[in-house]
Write a protein that binds this DNA or RNA. Structure first.
Lengths: 352, 352
DNA sequence: GCCAGACAGGAATAGGTTTTCCTTAATCGC
DNA sequence: GCGATTAAGGAAAACCTATTCCTGTCTGGC
């Protein structure tokens, strides 16, 4: 309409491009999207105009038209903490490949806020929603009959009709303890987080299962549940050493705990790993590498958890129905020095 | 057009609401937005219809029309790490109040990827862009003549026409050392990160300034630059203790370093804080609280950095022009036991 | 020379909302 | 009782793009 355009660069529309190239809007659209029958020369003229104007097609208009926005919402209740971030990055990897942008929402653990954010996402017509969080107990579903698919990652919906991707904590516990057994330990204690955390119980279950198969029992009779803190690691190790002085390995439910355990062991004169092996959980590098010696630990593959969840969401968006259920992603053992000498690290044998 | 609607709940449009309420589309819009002249009875009828259908106005259409999307892009090069997350949450606080949603983009430190993401954001017609990063190091501008305002937070644009919000690292260094002087320390060493980091140099500058004013000098003559790691903290403390055995305080450029320093001090038989006071930087709670004793440290107020940056961005979106420049947010000292007994913590004196 | 078909590009529509302008009916003032 | 004003709500344009359908022109075949 008016020729007086604000000094600040104003985003060009396809109308501007068409005018500059001397064609109609429809033709410009076809030229830019490689559709229709056009002379190569015309296509090039439109492309040049678009380049000159720095044209970027307005995604809103496109979304309105096609009924797909190529966006998803990411709702987290972990304040984007240590756990949800790798998940998020994994998801972004999977989604970014499909040109999908991510709206992030932090619920601050407030259900009201969460409901509101889901409403907002729906108003923005996201194509799907990813819910992530800190893994405690299964959480209430964010909505049973939403118009878009939903996938839970690193947290689990209480509604069996929802689909969740979580780490295999039982398997992680098994992995850790199998490694300890394989390196000759038999008097193995377990110091871990609060019992109300499903993850803590499952890791302990995994441990119990492997010990049981080997005809053994946990040192101290059962897992020591406490907190996810170094301080508890120190206390727990203290108790364990007093009641089970002959313990030769400690499996910890978190790297923070392992770190506290390691400190107490050293102060009590136990050498790691010679006298007592220590193994952590999470592979939180700042903790695991800062510890002395560096911690062998179980990595939950959170990046993969995020990627798998996003892949499922993409499939669902693409129309492939997802039933309810849970998919577990395997954990991985990361070997460092707290459980024994590293046998020939990654460098290949020069004689080979 | 067709009456055969897919079984899956389909988002209701204002047309459905209008039909159900028996009014025209325009009237429905006015009723829902409190505009125009309508009978209260009609308004209520429309509202009821909207409630019944779970109507959420399509934000795409609205954005298309009004030229504002109520979204901003958040571009980070920190992989949403320890520093950018508090910034992000602060920003979300400020933006959420204005009903603004956030697109998150992680550049993975790849300039190509970054350019691409900025293009995508512009195509999505965000109202503004927030750029955040790991450290305050000046970085290349994301674009000099973008059609939307840009604010940098916790990172700094090399272009003086851009606006950046960063923590006041010099002030943080001053704060730390002034506290040490106030508690009677005079032989103060400084162990910190790599010299190529502006933040490291500025913290050292703040320290030097305060010492200078007091007629003192750093123990060891100057700051010990190294790495942001516990290992370097241990090494650095070792060196410092050998060359300056009478040191009575160590200011560390990061909590990780402080933690390593504290460990070495204890192993060399120095009591903290009685013989040597230790002070960290970052207030990374997992580190600061796990250390023994818990670390006094400098908190960069990252949440506030994010909030302030977002406030500026909002103002700019609202039309208020921002010039280039840098705004610094004050640091804050968090007192814990590594610099002396906590004098009557937060609980008020019962005799008062 | 005329018709069929290909070729190049234009016109129009849809998508959902907001806003401006209009229409209709009712009320007021004299 | 009649013109003028107000109340209540409808019709249509605008935002920007992709697509479908349509028009006009040119070429080739007979």
């Amino acid at each position: 309409m008016s020729d007086t355009i604000t000094p600040g660069t104003r985003a060009a529309t396809i109308r501007d491009v068409a005018a500059l190239a001397g064609v109609s809007i429809g033709t410009a659209s076809k030229a830019l999207n490689g559709r229709g029958k056009l002379r190569p020369e015309t296509r090039e003229r439109v492309a040049a105009a678009a380049r000159q104007l720095g044209f970027q097609p307005n995604t809103l208009a496109r979304g309105l038209l096609r009924g797909r926005t190529f966006t998803v919402g990411l709702v987290t209740s972990d304040s984007f903490g240590r756990f949800s971030i790798p998940v998020m990055l994994g998801a972004e990897d999977a989604l970014g490949a499909g040109q999908i942008s991510v709206f992030m929402c932090d619920t601050r653990d407030d259900p009201i806020r969460e409901r509101h954010q889901v409403q907002t996402l729906l108003a923005r017509r996201v194509d799907g929603i990813l819910v992530t969080g800190r893994r405690t107990e299964p959480r209430p579903s964010i909505g049973t009959d939403l118009p878009v698919p939903v996938v839970y990652a690193m947290t689990q919906s209480a509604d069996p009709n929802d689909f969740s991707v979580i780490p295999d904590d039982i398997g992680g516990g098994e992995l850790a303890v199998r490694h300890l057994l394989a390196t000759g330990r038999t008097r193995i204690g377990h110091i871990t987080g609060p019992q109300r955390f499903l993850a803590a119980r499952q890791r302990a279950d995994g441990m119990a299962k492997v010990l049981d198969d080997a005809g053994l029992q946990a040192a101290g009779g059962a897992a020591f549940f406490g907190e996810w803190s170094e301080e508890w690691g120190r206390q727990g190790a203290d108790i364990l050493l007093r009641t089970q002085p002959d313990v030769d390995a400690i499996f910890c439910g978190a790297d923070q705990i392992a770190r506290g355990v390691a400190e107490t062991l050293r102060e009590r004169g136990r050498r790691i790993p010679d006298d007592v092996a220590v193994i952590g959980f999470d592979n939180w590098e700042a903790m695991a590498l800062g510890s002395r010696p560096p911690l062998t630990t179980v990595d939950m593959n959170l990046h993969k958890v995020g990627r798998v969840a996003a892949d499922h969401l993409l499939a669902a968006i693409g129309g492939q129905p997802i039933g309810g259920g849970v998919e577990e992603v395997e954990c991985e053992l990361v070997l460092r020095e707290s459980t024994g000498p590293i046998s020939q690290p990654l460098t290949p044998d020069p004689n080979d």
